[in-house]
């Protein structure tokens, strides 16, 4: 564990808490892409298949359980209690391409051809693009609630900090995995436009609006 990874994990934790807070406080999931949330649920379930077979630490297990449970809870609540508060007509990104693309990528680029490793790799590639339906929806509506922008910033910062963590781990431990590094870079690049608007507007107290 190093400071980059710890802060990254805490940002990830914070992002989910901010999202839950947004939904509860505004009693609405408006502006949230259900498809992105569904993709994150698939990401965590496929990545943490080793939950019962591979012990790392209490911290690691607790975080895994939280990420699976919270993403499942959000998907469930968006389908049930908050079903009428968000508009599926705005959430039109074709996730079949992301699900299929990640499958192809994990079949071509992986380190071991085993059940757990293929699903782990699939989750890494899928996570890199899971935010696209959300960004696509925001580019269509041209704006986002401030709390939603904070949620997205924390979520984007988490993977960006993991990239820094991987560089740090390579320098200090010689630990290197190029698949998550590359996927993390892709995800951070996808966030670039969002980060720009977040820093230039939301951090200065203005509303998140696309130019």
């Amino acid at each position: 564990m190093n400071v980059f990874r710890l802060v990254a994990d805490l940002m990830h934790l914070a992002s989910i808490l901010i999202l839950l807070l947004k939904i509860r406080k505004t009693r609405s999931a408006a502006g949230i892409s259900f498809k992105s949330q569904l993709l994150y649920l698939i990401v965590f379930v496929t990545r943490y298949l080793d939950l019962f077979t591979h012990w790392v630490s209490l911290y690691n297990t607790a975080m895994k359980v939280f990420f699976i449970a919270s993403s499942g809870y959000i998907v469930y609540q968006m389908q049930r209690r908050y079903r009428a508060t968000w508009d599926p007509a705005l959430d039109t990104f074709r996730i079949e391409f992301l699900l299929g693309g990640a499958a192809v990528m994990s079949l071509i680029f992986h380190t071991k051809f085993t059940f757990l490793e293929l699903f782990w790799t699939y989750s890494i590639w899928l996570e890199a693009v899971a935010i696209l339906p959300q960004l696509f929806q925001m580019s269509r509506t041209g704006e986002a609630e401030t709390i939603t922008a904070h949620y997205l910033f924390a979520l984007g910062a988490y993977r960006g900090l993991y990239v820094v963590n991987w560089i740090y781990r390579y320098a200090t431990e010689g630990y290197w995995e190029w698949i998550p590094f590359l996927a993390g870079m892709v995800q951070t690049v996808l966030y670039a436009d969002f980060f720009y608007v977040y820093f230039s507007r939301v951090m200065r107290g203005k509303k998140f609006e696309l130019p």
Partner: peptide, 10 residues
Amino acid sequence: AVEGATHDEL
């Protein structure tokens, strides 16, 4: 060891 499960990150 469990197959492929060497990942210690989240």
